[in-house]
Amino acid sequence: MTDKVITSENVRLYYGEKEALHGVNLDFKKNEITALIGPSGSGKSTYLRCLNRINDLIPEVTVTGSIKMDKQDIYAPNVDITELRKRVGMVFQQPNPFPFSVYENVAYGVKLAGRSKVSKAEMDKIVEDSLKKAAVWDEVKDNLNDSALSFSGGQQQRICIARVLAVKPEIILLDEPTSALDPISSYAIENTLLSIKKDYTIIIVTHNMQQASRISDQTAFLLDGKLVEAGPTKEIFINPKEKETNDYLNGKFG
């Protein structure tokens, strides 16, 4: 499994004049979990948000360099951003289900983004499958018509994952998905990610190093908008090449 799904070269991002990412080169492999770690303000979330161009929503952000997905530059002018985002789903730090029912939350993306009509039976199946994959089906199956907001934070976050899965992405970005959750909910989300890994490429930003070591195959360490080092998680954690990585992992800063 050495297929590179995403290759990025010299990615720089500017907020107005200020450069926040100073040329990041990083590749992601298919069906692996890559963890982006680093202290607050290291640019890991900012970088992640380049991969589905969600940074485009923020005015005055410019991105240079190249990010290629299946050899296609996603910042090329002819790219259909909505298509891109269907292929690259995203889960946010704060669980942000729509204030709709659980069923609608999962069905919404399919319903609104789909070009063809999906029958009720098909939709039921999509919703059930997605919630099962996100490992939250057993907890919500009897209350599919209740508002998603009536569930716990951890359940909401897994509903959000189900919502992403329903649109059938190839890549899933997670921006500190468990930082607002308790350890048990976090553990449930980690298991969810491990169980869906075989079908997706997962990139997760986390400030929780144990989490990164538990679930990721690859780890990339960012500091001050620069990539310090990247490689298989075991190597990075046991035998980091750079002193900064070592210091960070050993809690000397951050």
Binding site: N52, I54, L57, T82, E83, L84, R85, K86, R87, G89, M90, F92, Q94, N96, P97, F98, P99, F100, Y108, G109, L112, A113, C160, R163, V164, V167
Partner: peptide
């Protein structure tokens, strides 16, 4: 966050507005 959720599902801005933001 709701706009970003809509966008990240691959909804156009218009669909995000009519389908999510407006009902809320």
């Amino acid at each position: 966050l709701q706009r970003q959720a809509g966008a990240s599902l691959g909804l156009s801005r218009w669909k995000t507005i009519t389908g999510i933001i407006f009902p809320i």
